[in-house]
């Protein structure tokens, strides 16, 4: 650092002499570089601040108020909204539904996605077609997915009805039953997610060095041992990435849920994201909605930090 500092023009010296022209030139170049840096960073900084961080700060403020989104005044109520939520059995029920929803979808999607990826990594006839088909649900809009699955699940006309009829049973009332609505939604999200997860895993599988498998084969390793000792550990960076992004995405899942169940019947599919929407745009209760959003924000940060701490330890980077 001292050597670098010595090159900087710091104005007149103690003996009255000034810095050399070469040093002044360097200073101007540094200034130009700095201004260029600012020109690039300030617009991005501004937009990130405005559209990412400011809403969080403003939401935190709203969570401390009572406001119906129309009145000119927001009443400051301190932590009342949080106290209301954590003492409301329905909200605690919402958290329970959210945990089942997220765990079901994340674990299910990862297992199915990996299974499909391993399968599609074999040399099979029509592999390219199946890869494309399995990825297709990921690019469909939530509205289209919801509409298709409402038809599939329809107990009177749906595509699943003949399957149940074949074994002499009636199709459940998937979307109008408190027992079946949540499993039904999880099935839909699994279908939507697993193609994307399989595709990312496939990319990961193609990076696993062949020589590891050759060495394992020479050592007489079986398929399951090879998967457990080589494939899965070598995919750990991909798993780490997918677990975090799928968890965050599932917490925020809204579109299919809104179309298919709207949080019901009763509160059987009311997840945290639906609760926030309902409080804000059905009940016009910005305070409780914002408090719910802050809880989701904190929960996601904690989960991501825990995943980073515990999963990354097991991640094997090449």
């Amino acid at each position: 650092m001292a050597a670098v500092d010595a090159r900087v023009d710091t104005g007149p010296r103690a003996d009255g002499t000034r810095a050399t022209p070469a040093r002044r030139g360097r200073h101007r170049r540094h200034l130009r570089e700095y201004l260029l840096f600012l020109a690039f960073i300030v617009p991005n900084f501004f937009f990130v601040l405005t559209f990412a961080y400011w809403p969080v700060v403003y939401n935190a403020y709203l969570s401390l108020t009572s406001w119906n989104m129309l009145a000119p005044v927001k009443d400051f109520v301190g932590l009342d909204n949080y106290v209301d939520l954590f003492t409301d059995p329905d909200f605690l029920g919402t958290l329970r539904v959210t945990v089942v929803f997220v765990v079901g979808i994340v674990v299910g999607s990862m297992v199915l996605g990996l299974a499909i990826a391993v399968l599609l990594n074999q040399k099979l006839v029509g592999r390219g077609f199946v890869r494309t088909m399995s990825f297709a649900p990921h690019i469909l809009s939530g509205a289209a997915i919801g509409t298709i699955w409402l038809f599939i699940f329809d107990p009177n006309y749906g595509l699943v009805r003949p399957l149940f009829a074949a074994v002499g049973a009636d199709s459940p009332n998937w979307m109008t039953s408190t027992t079946w609505a949540l499993p039904g939604l999880i099935i839909v999200y699994l279908w939507k997610n697993m193609g994307f997860i399989a595709t990312v895993y496939l990319a990961g599988l193609s990076n696993v060095p062949r020589e590891l498998y050759e060495a394992a084969a020479l050592d007489g390793s079986g398929a399951w041992t090879t998967f457990r000792k080589i494939t899965f550990p070598m995919l750990s960076p991909v798993t780490f990435f997918l677990v975090i992004t799928t968890t965050i995405g599932t917490f925020q899942a809204f579109d299919v849920l809104a179309l298919m169940t709207a949080g019901g019947p009763g509160s059987s599919t009311t997840t945290l994201s639906w609760f926030i929407y309902q409080q804000a745009f059905k009940a016009f209760d910005a305070g409780h909605a914002a408090a719910g959003a802050m809880i989701m924000f904190v929960v996601l940060i904690i989960i991501t930090a825990l995943q980073a701490r515990f999963l990354e330890r097991k991640v094997h980077y090449r």
Partner: peptide
């Protein structure tokens, strides 16, 4: 209506 859904389905 959320309460009614609990009667009707649950």
């Amino acid at each position: 209506y959320t309460g009614l859904q609990k009667i009707w389905t649950n």
